[in-house]
């Protein structure tokens, strides 16, 4: 074969190999996962809802599924839909809070990490937060928790989209500044 053809062939071969390698790696943020992820790895009750501890504080175990759901755009998007369908807006509005506390600020009574938010949804909390364990499947609770994290800018970048259909009830999620959660011991 002629030498320019050989050169083109080699270059095409490299390009194809590169594409296949990229395909194998994929992009975690963009993956659409519908199948269930299986049972949780952290035992229930291991999540702390307060910061008061005797001696040196132990960290809350970090659930890898929490990171996974937070970093995936599809899950955050599903969480946004479920937040509306399961009537979270009824108490929390679109993050600004109404009869329930605001979810888009830095104040969290029972912790603002995704594991703590997941625990709050599952277990319920005093003064009106229902317990959704056995009602909303576990994966869907993670999706809602991931969405809630984006309201305060705490999800990885580029996961949350900026647009929102319907009335503009909250700032675009891609433009929200990051507000690191602070657990307050308020008993209002």
């Amino acid at each position: 074969m002629c030498s320019p053809c050989r050169r083109i062939e080699r270059r095409a071969g490299f390009a194809l190999a590169a594409l296949l390698a990229l395909a194998a790696v994929g992009c975690e943020r963009e993956r659409r996962e519908y199948a269930s992820k299986g049972p949780p790895t952290t035992p229930p009750g291991a999540v702390r809802v307060g910061t008061l501890q005797p001696g040196t504080p132990l960290p809350t175990p970090s659930e890898p599924r929490g990171r996974h759901f937070e970093g995936n755009a599809y899950h955050v998007n599903q969480g946004q839909q479920l937040y509306k369908w399961f009537n979270c807006t009824g108490c929390h509005a679109n993050g600004g809070g109404a009869i329930g506390p605001a979810l888009m600020d830095a104040q969290w009574r029972y912790g603002g990490s995704i594991e703590q938010i997941h625990a709050s949804i599952m277990q319920g909390r005093p003064n009106g937060m229902p317990s959704f364990a056995g009602k909303i499947p576990d994966d869907q609770v993670w999706q809602i928790a991931a969405y809630v994290r984006t309201m305060s800018g705490n999800a990885p970048k580029y996961v949350a989209g900026g647009g929102r259909q319907g009335m503009a009830v909250a700032p675009p999620l891609s433009r929200v500044p990051r507000l690191k959660p602070k657990t307050t011991e308020s008993s209002q």
């Binding site: 519908y34 199948a35 269930s36 599903q78 839909q81 994966d139 869907q140």
Partner: peptide, 14 residues
């Protein structure tokens, strides 16, 4: 449900 209609909004009720 996901096995028959992958991507549907109905989760596995477990």
């Amino acid at each position: 449900p996901q096995a028959h209609k992958p991507g549907t909004n109905m989760p596995d009720p477990k």
